[in-house]
Design a protein around this nucleic acid. Sequence first.
DNA 1: GACGATATTGACGTTAACGTAAACGTAAAC
DNA 2: GTTTACGTTTACGTTAACGTCAATATCGTC
Lengths: 131, 131
Amino acid sequence: MPPSSTTWTIAEIANEFSVTHRALRHYEQMGLLSPERVGPNGSRRLYDKRDHIRLALILRGRRLGFPLEEIGTIIDMYDDQPGEAGQLRYLLDQIQDRRADLQRRRADIDQSLGELEELEARCHSDLKRLS
Amino acid sequence: MPPSSTTWTIAEIANEFSVTHRALRHYEQMGLLSPERVGPNGSRRLYDKRDHIRLALILRGRRLGFPLEEIGTIIDMYDDQPGEAGQLRYLLDQIQDRRADLQRRRADIDQSLGELEELEARCHSDLKRLS
DNA sequence: GACGATATTGACGTTAACGTAAACGTAAAC
DNA sequence: GTTTACGTTTACGTTAACGTCAATATCGTC
């Protein structure tokens, strides 16, 4: 077994992130991951540092409820650092959109957290009233 | 037309929240909404203030990526204020769970926003380098 | 009371994100 | 060198959240 410091088998990475093999192959088919192939006939997947990072981003995106396709375009923003001015300006635009979306979501969350606190307060006072 | 201050037809509420009639009927079937029925044979839906409020909560939940079923149990927490101590304590527990979830999500969002800023900075410096 | 606008109830279709089973290859351990 | 564990492809199944007809009813208006 080579030191698994920078590479992972499918079982290792699936276990680390608690996802199924099927999900990993699905992400690969969607173009979100592209593990190397090893073995004489190239019959086994081998995930490297880049895949590892991308998978973490994929799962965070999923926790936030983003569709996989959108997640793909988002994490590609990080990976494909463009060298041309036009593309850079376009990327900056995309960043603004993403930021606006995330800020809206955070506002929704803060709203929800606020209402939860109200409800909690009501509960506590009701409990006191009952004792 | 009675003053639509506290009641809405399906067209009105659908229009206000930019959802389809179909979606409203779906939410109703999931038990998230329960509009009155009006007309002799009770053949038309009439949404009141409570439905209006619940719909707003439903859509916020949807924006945050929650499944409708979970949204249902969440907004029921607000509506069914229990009067018994055991139920109140149970509700307080639920509130903690929900809060933890929302805080995790906010942490994910803040992470993402932070990384976006890094990327933005890189873009800007790359643009300067090119000029 | 005819007619267009609005609403209702089925019922089947669709998309996303995998689950699951089958059938088979390969590597590891004994 | 054969079990045993791990991995692969193919392909059909599933769930959620509606979309999209089609057929029918009813309301408001002239």
